[in-house]
Write a protein that binds this DNA or RNA. Structure first.
Lengths: 201, 201
DNA sequence: CTACTATATGGACCGTTGGTCAAGTTGTCT
DNA sequence: AGACAACTTGACCAACGGTCCATATAGTAG
C-alpha cells in the first residue's frame, strides 16, 4: 500500500469551490431546492465534475458533513475533558450531547439535505448509515453508555439519542432556534438513564 | 354543511383494489422500488385513478397507514386498560409503547415508504407532519407524560420516543425481527424517565 | 327504458433531476 | 518538449410524480 498519487491542483481547487458553493446555496435555500446543477453552476464547473469528485449527491453532502463535524470529532477523540478523555462517562455523555446539539443546530439544513439525498438516490442505494460521522458519534456514545450502565442496551440507546437529530419534528425545533430545549430534553433523558449521578433538576 | 355525496360504487371498488395492490407490492419489494404506476397496474386501474383517489404518493401511503393504525387508535381512545383509559399514566405509556412497536414491526416497509414519499414529493410540500396517525400518537403520549411528570418537556420527550420509529438504524432492527429489543429499550427509557414507579429490571 | 349529469377513468404527456459517458483538455513528471 | 494520466464537460438518458381532458359509466329522475 504505497502513497497514492496526490490530487491534481485544479481538481483540489474545484473541490473547494464546489464545497463552498454548496455550503452557500444550502444556507440560502431549502435543501430540496438545491440541485446539483445549481451547485455546479455556482461553483463555476460542469455538472460532471461534481459527480467525479463526490460520486453522488449524497456523497457531496457527506463530504460537507465531515468537514463540519471534524472539530467535534477531534475534541471527543483527544480534546480536553469533559468532552475528551479523562472525565467520567456520565459527564462525557452530557458534554457530548450538548456539543452535538449545538453543532446540529448550526447545520440543520445540511442534515436534512443529506437525508433527502439518500432518500432520492437513484444509483446504488448502498449500505445505509455508511455515514462516517454518524458511525463515529454512535460508537462514542455507545461505548460511554456501556461503561456507565452495563445493564443497558448501549447500542440501541445510543441510536435513540443520536437519532433524535434525524427526527423531523425535532429538526423543526432546531430550525426555530429552540436548540436549548432539545439540549435540555436530551440531558434529562440521559441523566435519568445514567442513574442517580446528578439530580434531574 | 349537509351530507356529502357518497362515493360511487366503482370508485370505492377501485380504492380498495389500489389499497390492496399497494399493500401487496410493499410487502414484496423495497419501498423505493414501488412506483405508483406499478401499483396502478397491479390494481388493474390507470395511473390517473390512483392520483384521483389519493392525491399523491404520500396520500396513498397515508391512507394505508391510517388503515393499519386504526385498531390501535381505537384501543387507546376507548379500549380496556392499560392501553385504554383507566390505568395510571405510567402503565398506559408502557402499554402504548409496546403496542406501537408491535404495530410498527409489522409495517416497517410502510413507514419507510411514507417517509420516502414525503421526501420525494414534487407538488405541495405542505405542512410536514400532517400525518394524522403521528399526531394522534404524539398527543396521546405527550398528555400521559405531562400527567406523570409535569416537570418534563412532555411534547419533546414524546417526539423523542415516537420518533424512534423514523430512525433508520432502528427501522433496520425491526426489519431484522428484533422488535423485542426496541420494545425493551423504549421500556427502560420510559421507566427511567417516569421516575421510580417500577424497577428498571 | 331513456335521458341526463355528476363522477370516475386512463394513459399520453410534461418537467425535473440524479446520474452517465465519450471526447476533448490540462496538469505533472521525466 | 513529450507522454500519460487525471480531469472536465455538457449533451444525453431513464425514471417517476403529477397533470389533463376526452371518454365512459353509475346513479337518478321522469
Amino acid at each position: 500500500m504505497g502513497e497514492q498519487r496526490r490530487e491534481r491542483a485544479d481538481a483540489a481547487r474545484n473541490r473547494r469551490a464546489i464545497l463552498e458553493a454548496a455550503e452557500e446555496l444550502l444556507r440560502l435555500h431549502r435543501p430540496d431546492e438545491v440541485s446539483i446543477e445549481q451547485v455546479a453552476a455556482a461553483a463555476g464547473v460542469g455538472k460532471g465534475t461534481v459527480f467525479h469528485r463526490f460520486g453522488s449527491r449524497a456523497g457531496l453532502m457527506l463530504a460537507l458533513m465531515e468537514e463540519r463535524a471534524q472539530e467535534l470529532s477531534e475534541a471527543i477523540a483527544a480534546g480536553p475533558p469533559p468532552l475528551g478523555p479523562g472525565a467520567p462517562p456520565h459527564e462525557r455523555i452530557l458534554a457530548f450531547l450538548d456539543a452535538m446539539v449545538a453543532l446540529a443546530s448550526r447545520n440543520v439544513g445540511l442534515i436534512t439535505a443529506h437525508e433527502h439525498a439518500v432518500a432520492t438516490q437513484r444509483s446504488a442505494a448502498g449500505p445505509r448509515e455508511a455515514n462516517p460521522v454518524y458511525r463515529r458519534w454512535h460508537a462514542h456514545v455507545s461505548e460511554l453508555i456501556a461503561r456507565a450502565r452495563p445493564d443497558l442496551d448501549a447500542t440501541l440507546v445510543a441510536h435513540l439519542l443520536i437519532g433524535s437529530l434525524h427526527n423531523e419534528p425535532v429538526a423543526r425545533l432546531l430550525l426555530d432556534g429552540e436548540s436549548e430545549r432539545l439540549a435540555a430534553g436530551l440531558r434529562s433523558l440521559a441523566t435519568s438513564l445514567l442513574g442517580p449521578g446528578s439530580a434531574p433538576m
